[in-house]
């Protein structure tokens, strides 16, 4: 759906050049929710603005569908932009227009006749759950409601792609979740391709299928959300994964565990995807003669299935414990005996 090749953007400041995006290549498939995560200054904001040419790339190409965005003239670009919706961190609604008129704005731009416009706007107001608020002004809405207007406005012209520029960063956690649910809902209902940038791993975990990690204008790691969660390779990715898994405590608590439970074997189990649905622990304790002691763990849900880590202690006959571990290895759960970090 979106193919990005060797994309670069250089900003010229007074005394130096800043490479905000540096030779970035990426393919985003139709219907996917693709998350780009990075700390501020990583270039992700510039990256998403390059996708609808709010910034013009210095080098490289962007194809949306089979259209080469980078080669388009000003007028053709305007038409192409009507196929790419965008929502913003600070919503960017027109305060002088009502909710209804804000949503109608992109339709006015596209030259949709009045009756059709009215039908479409009412449809969208219902879709984003703002029925009855059409005549309110943005200033009368909460942050979450404003973002709903933003989403409705972005969807007005039936775009193929929705770009989300830190769309939930200005919202509280609860509102964030309701907006994310709405995005997933739209993605499923309309088959819309969504590209979002964020600095919150929570957002990636909750709704993304694919993730790319950005640092200094480059993508340092990318892939299936679950894979990246399970095997983060770059230090920056590990930090982001820790954000959600709360594993800052891990080292600390692992030391505690080791000090406290010196008998038996301490084992770390990685649950990925479907394996979390198996009743593994109870199965092991039934099949083998040993005691299973759950020490520490966390399982979390992503769009691609569940993911989690658990520390357990196996106490029993050494051979029996070894057999139990062998058995777990035969399932899709990954096992690490005597983990050291």
């Amino acid at each position: 759906m979106i193919t990005i090749k060797d994309l670069s953007k250089v900003f010229q400041t007074k005394d130096r050049e800043v490479k905000a995006v540096d030779g970035l290549s990426l393919t985003i498939n139709k219907g996917e929710i693709y998350g780009v995560i990075g700390y501020s200054g990583a270039g992700k904001s510039t990256f998403i603005r390059l996708l609808n040419r709010l910034e013009d790339p210095t080098e490289g190409s962007i194809h949306v569908g089979d259209q080469d965005l980078t080669g388009l003239s000003k007028n053709k670009l305007r038409i192409a932009r009507q196929d790419i919706g965008m929502i913003f961190q600070h919503f960017n609604l027109l305060w002088s227009r009502t909710v209804y008129d804000n949503i109608a704005f992109p339709l006015e731009i596209a030259g949709v006749p009045k009756e059709e416009r009215s039908r479409r706007v009412n449809e969208l107001i219902d879709l984003v759950g703002l029925s009855g608020r059409g005549n309110s002004y943005p200033s009368q809405l909460s942050g979450g409601q404003k973002q709903r207007v933003g989403i409705a406005r972005a969807l007005a012209n039936n775009p193929k792609v929705l770009l989300c520029d830190e769309a939930t960063s200005a919202l509280d956690p609860e509102t964030t979740d309701s907006i994310l649910d709405l995005l997933v809902d739209i993605n499923e209902k309309l088959g819309l391709t969504i590209v979002l940038i964020t600095h919150e791993m929570h957002v990636i975990r909750k709704i993304c299928h694919q993730v790319a990690v950005m640092e200094q204008g480059r993508i340092v790691e990318k892939g299936d959300v679950l894979d990246v969660f399970l095997h983060p390779e770059q230090p920056v990715t590990k930090k982001f994964v820790d954000q959600v898994m709360g594993d800052q405590e891990k080292e600390h608590s692992l030391k505690l565990i080791k000090d406290k439970y010196q008998s038996g074997k301490i084992v770390r189990l990685h649950f990925v995807g479907e394996s979390t649905n198996q009743a593994l622990i109870s199965e092991v304790s039934r099949k083998f003669v040993l005691d299973v002691n759950i020490l520490h763990g966390k399982i979390t849900q992503t769009q691609k299935g569940a993911y989690g880590t658990m520390f357990v202690q196996f106490e029993g006959d050494n051979e029996e414990v070894a057999r139990a571990i062998e058995y777990i290895r035969s399932t899709s759960v990954e096992v690490e005996v005597n983990p050291d970090a």
């Binding site: 609808n52 709010l54 670009l77 305007r78 038409i79 192409a80 932009r81 009507q82 790419i84 965008m86 913003f88 960017n92 609604l93 704005f105 992109p106 731009i109 596209a110 406005r153 012209n157 770009l163």
Partner: peptide, 9 residues
Amino acid sequence: EAAKAMGAK
């Protein structure tokens, strides 16, 4: 910017 992103003249 939002208006530009919508393809406004």
